[in-house]
Amino acid sequence: MDAFYPVWLGPQRFAIPATSVRGIEQVREYGSPTTALHTRWGRIPLCDLAALSDPPPRDLDFRYALLIMYNHAWIGIVVDRIDDLVSVAQTVLPLPPLVHDSILDPTISGVILLDDIPCVVLDLEAFVVTYWLVSQSNFMIP
């Protein structure tokens, strides 16, 4: 049995392996754009999962952050909603051929069926590398 957190980004549900989640915090900030969470562990930078769909900037207030560890550092991945943990007997299914061939994004690691509906499984560490670390880097182009 593997456990997953079903998380929502707008109308779409994704599944996050529970083993990669170290904690869940509500993001409660007002005013200027929220980029970090202040917790008992200190300041944790936030990264919006909506980067997957290349959205316009949005207000992160009153959303939820999945806390993960990447390279010995805390990072919060912001989602709209988190459902109760679910356990599934099935293994993660590979994407069907045409979809699999078209994706270069390592964030998408497969699919599980929740209530018989396909749900894309995300690798949050790969997401951090693909969408957050790149945006934080200052590349010097000669």
Partner: peptide, 26 residues
């Protein structure tokens, strides 16, 4: 409604569960 998969071409609108098999919706 198919399940959309991020980072796919626009014509691939997602995947559906067809009696336990995942099928690409186009």
């Amino acid at each position: 409604p198919p399940t959309p998969v991020p980072s796919t071409p626009p014509a691939i609108i997602g995947i559906i569960n067809q009696r336990g098999a995942l099928v690409t919706a186009l």
